[in-house]
Amino acid sequence: MKRSIRFSDRLANWLPRLVLTPSLLVVLVAVYLFIAWTGWISLSSSNIVPRYDFVGLEQYVRLWSTPRWHTAVANLFIFSSLFLGLTTGLGLLMAILLDQRIRAEGALRAIFLYPMALSFIVTGTAWKWILNPALGVQKVVNDAGWTSFVFDWISQPRFAIYCVVIAAVWQSTGFAMAIFLAGLRGIDNSVIKAAQIEGAGLPLIYRTIIVPMLRPAFLSVIVLLSYVAIKSFDLILALTNTGPGSATEMPSTFMYAATFRRDQMGVGAASAMMMLMTVAAIIVPYLYSELKETRDGC
């Protein structure tokens, strides 16, 4: 009797760990072991199939001597910062507007959310036409009488990446809005009322009281959006196919082309490692601070 209690106690102690173990093992293999494999390939001479030899940092040297990779890295930073900033800002604005006891809120919410639901393989085509100077916005405005109006970013190598940003913002803002809206709904109305009684206007209340209270929502939005930004892949392929020239190349498209189209698996793996290191440099400190906070009993 005593023994069985002790056994069940011990089981109860170990059960949580046992339950977590399969997930941990699977992730260790499917994430970390595979990263290690990629790291190994990046040090090998692999071209069409994996080759398990060792050539040192040759592939990294080759990678960084490729002009297209430099474009890809620059684009990643332009794209990510603009995408994160605009999506967060616009999402917050939409959430605040929607939170003003609006009629037809449900319909508007659906309108802002639907782009997430559609595959970019085809919405990319629609955007391609809209942004095309001879077919889309520019033509419509020109036909309406403003003939000097020019909006041809998509054909300008220097500006095409901003078109990608526009389409990406369009696709993901609804999600940010939903999270912010949720955050706003979670805020006690009495806080706002109290401030209003003291004579503060709505803009001031939002700026100084409500937005700071949304900090957790901001964190969720940024984690989820960074995930989307890193994965931006079919977006590029469908909208610009990395053109004009290779002006909208991104690390994910670079890696894909190197590995699967150009028979440079080693270079592809090296670019994947560079991407992972960048992500780790940004995400690991964030995770660390987040988790430390929890440990402190937050």
Partner: peptide
């Protein structure tokens, strides 16, 4: 030429034309 070389032509020619 092998894909790793033909990619170079694609990159350079495409970039030349639009820049």
């Amino acid at each position: 030429v092998e894909p790793r070389f033909s990619g170079v032509f694609l990159d350079v020619v495409g970039k030349f034309f639009v820049s």
